[in-house]
Amino acid sequence: MKKALSIGNALIAIAAGVLVLLGYLLPELLGTLRTLLVQWAVILAAFALLLGIINLVMVHGKRLTTPKASLNKLYSAVLLLSLILTILLVGIATPTSFWSVWLVSTFQVPVEASLLAVLAVVLVYSASRLLSRRLHWTSLLFLGTVVLVLLGMAPLLFIGEVPILSSLRQWLASVPALAGARGLLLGVALGAIATGLRILMGVDRPYGD
C-alpha cells in the first residue's frame, strides 16, 4: 500500500511538472492547463502558510515548556504573544487598516532596519577577515575591486569626485562584473535545469516517498 502510494505521488508530481513545462513551450495547446495547475499550486501554498504558522507556534511552544531556564524562553514568549496580538489586531481591523500599517511600520520596519545596519558592519568585518582566511590572488582581486567601486561611488572628502575613479567603476560594473555575473547566472541556470529534470524523471522526490 505504502509503495503504491509512493508511486502514485511520484506519477502525479511528474505529470503535473511535465504538463506545466510543456505549457510554457506550447502555450496555445497547453497554456490553459498550465495556468490552472499553477493556480492550484498557489492555493496549496496559501495552506502551507497556515501549516508554517502552526510549526512556528509548535517550535516556540516546545521551547517555552522545556525545563531549562534561558533567555530564549523570554524571546519565544514575546514571539508567541506578538503573533497572537498581530492576528487579533489585523483580523479585527483588516490588513490595510491604520492599525495594521502602524504595527508594521512601528515594530517590523525599525527592527529590520537595525538588522540591516548590523549586516553592513558584519560585511565590512568579513571582508577585512578574508585575507587571513584565504590568502589567494582572487581574494586580493575581490578586495581591490570592492575598494575601487566604493571609491568611485561617491565624492571623496575634501577632494570631491575623481573622474578616473568614476569611469573605472563604471567600466568595472559594465564589462568584467557583468561578464562574470552572466557566467555565474548561466551556471546557475544549467544547474537549475539539471535539478528540474531529475525531479521530472522521478529521481529526486522532494515531496517524500
Binding site: A45, A48, N55, Y207
Partner: peptide, 9 residues
C-alpha cells in the same frame, strides 16, 4: 512555508 513543509516531509 512551503519549503518548511517540504523539509519536514
Amino acid at each position: 512555508s512551503l519549503t518548511a513543509v517540504l523539509s519536514q516531509d
